[in-house]
Amino acid sequence: MELVLSLGIGALVGSGVWLLLRPRTYQVIVGLSLIGYGVNLFIFSMGRLRVNAAPVLPEGGIPDPAAFADPVPQALVLTAIVIGFATTALFLVVLLASRGLTGSDHVDGREP
């Protein structure tokens, strides 16, 4: 599982960085989204990978903390997803404004 997850994160972030360095605004925004997914998975993995372990404790005491997954990274991922979604939407608006004002989808607003 560790190998699959690391390959997944690597592929997402790698393609994201490549797209981020491309000259078209659409490629940049897709690249940023891909990096975002990779980073979210990375945060998730920092709580250690567990299978079949609940992140929520049952009511009435803690039986054995080792049997549960770490809930903090999951909460962090949730926040990161929401913030990432909002900023991507905002970036999309600026991207469209740039396209409308300059008539080009190049990141510098003009063809080189």
Binding site: V28, L101, V107, G109
Partner: peptide, 9 residues
Amino acid sequence: VRAGLHYIA
């Protein structure tokens, strides 16, 4: 808008 695009990215 152009500077904003770079800044946001």
